[in-house]
Design a protein around this nucleic acid. Sequence first.
DNA 1: GCAATTGTTGGGAG
DNA 2: GCTCCCAACAATTG
Length: 258
Amino acid sequence: MPELPDVEGFRDRLSATLPGRRIDAVEVRDSGVLRNASARALNRALSGHRFEEPRRHGKWLLLPAEGPTLLVHSGMTGRPYYTSAADGDRHDRVVITLDRGELHYTDQRKLRGIWLVDSQEDIDDLLRDQGPDALGLDRHAFTEILRRHRGALKPTLMDQSVVAGLGNLLVDEICWRARLNPKVHVGELGDSDVRRLHRAVTSVLRTAVRHGCVPGLRRWLTRVRDDTDPSCPRCGTRLRRGRVGGRSTVWCSQCQPG
DNA sequence: GCAATTGTTGGGAG
DNA sequence: GCTCCCAACAATTG
């Protein structure tokens, strides 16, 4: 689930609760989510520290704590959340007890997880291959980035080293909005195509961030993509399903020819 | 039992 | 070097 809008929602909610909270204890219930540190190292590095303002880059969430920083990548099913009560989730893997409330990381599938780093250099290292964040990317920068690539549109937009934050649902929604076939090659796009694409990225992201997910709104592809026999919310044509770049893809052969 | 799943990585082919 | 495909990671659902 987590793409840029979801992670931005995590960041926004944690921003309202986490800064200033002191870490009292780190309880690791499933070390399968720890990617580069032991539970003991986590405890030692974080205990007594206070969380600062959370940040985000693409699908990465950064939780700095006066020196050490937790980097969270939620994979497909992860979600960090603050709770003031002692409630939780079935798949809570890490529970950090704070001086007030708790920070939980729940993750059913554990495809990614949590990294602990202790310097800006280590952060840069982990995020080295990330392209610029998709949110707030202006048209000039977007065009310049796109012009460096030749492959199919959808895999290019989903490549986190090209642009950081776009996932499967978002990219389908963006291509549909821009009336571009997900299989079209980036090199074939004209200036007006790129302009339309940038507008679609911006507007879809802005709305999705407001909702904290890719919303199934009235005139959105996401609303119908999981229907048994979905039709285009714009023109009514039966939607096509297939795989593009190895991912399940939905598009409208009428609105997105090619 | 088999396929599929909203993410990422590494290996290998062309 | 670039692009694409596959398998793997893991857990659950249809």
